[in-house]
């Protein structure tokens, strides 16, 4: 239970933080691709009877490596690329899961699909902590570049900032974080963790620094609340986390001062 709590807090913090960058850089569709790339990788791991986390990391890294440059280079809109990669990853995931001899029964399969926060191990928590620390350090160091790119990538480029490395870094990091958070809510619901806290916080503030500070807190609080709701009602943890975070987002939209008439 202790590890589950630590996992919830860390994954909530990380996905909440990263979600702001994904939403504001307008690469949400790539976030979907990454989350499902990790899901497909984990499914492959289950089918091959190797550690799903390793294969998920490999798969999401490959997706991250290709999707950014393809979106930049191909004579197609980024949405077209992601609309193709997203169902491709889902299709691969289901093919891999079908290849697993005990599909539907095997615990690993269920974990990949729906998540199993109670199966978070000590190394998982260590990975999440180190990614959390690295992410915070890099965001602190390159804050002004990220800030300008989140405002407008083309203008940032016009001002002499090389935007590609920063955008690719966020895509790559999204793959990593999504993979490590897979045990929390599973491959089908993981992107809700990425977008709901960021979208919630964006309803309340006109200050980007405050949003970047608050979104991880919202992420962690909703994850922990979801965990307790699931324990209390005896429902799947992942679903409860997503339900809680969606409820919080809906409340935020209703109460948002940005939507009040002046």
């Amino acid at each position: 239970m202790q590890r589950a709590l630590v996992g919830c807090v860390l994954a909530g913090l990380l996905t909440g933080l990263l979600g702001v960058f994904v939403v504001k850089m307008k690469i949400s569709s790539m976030g979907y691709c990454m989350s499902h790339g990790a899901f497909a990788g984990a499914a492959l791991g289950v089918a091959m009877a190797v550690d799903p986390l390793t294969t998920a990391l490999v798969f999401s890294s490959i997706t991250a490596l290709f999707i950014g440059p393809i979106a930049d280079k191909a004579r197609l809109h980024a949405d077209v690329i992601t609309s193709i990669v997203f169902p491709l990853n889902m299709a691969l995931a289901f093919v891999f899961l079908t290849l697993s001899p005990e599909v539907g029964l095997k615990t690993d399969v269920a974990n990949v699909l729906w998540g199993s926060v109670l199966s978070i191990t000590y190394p998982d928590a260590v990975y999440l902590t180190s990614i959390c620390a690295t992410t915070l350090a890099l965001i602190f160091l390159f804050w002004k570049e990220f800030f300008a790119i989140m405002f407008d990538r083309k203008l940032a480029e016009a001002d002499g900032i090389s935007t590609k490395p920063f955008v690719y870094f966020i895509i790559f990091l999204t793959g990593f974080v999504v993979t490590l958070s897979l045990k929390l809510v599973g491959g089908l619901l993981i992107f809700a963790l990425l977008f709901n806290p960021a979208s919630t916080t964006l309803q309340f503030s006109h200050n980007m620094k405050r949003i970047v500070f608050l979104s991880p807190i919202v992420g962690a609080v909703t994850c922990v609340s979801g965990l307790f709701v699931s324990l209390f009602l005896d429902l799947p943890v992942g679903s409860c986390i997503v339900l809680v975070s969606t409820f919080v987002f809906a409340l935020a939209v209703l109460l948002s001062p940005k939507r009040r008439r002046r």
Partner: peptide
């Protein structure tokens, strides 16, 4: 933000 490129990386 207009100055960020000229300020250069790692300097605030």
């Amino acid at each position: 933000m207009g100055m960020y490129g000229k300020i250069g990386i790692l300097r605030k």
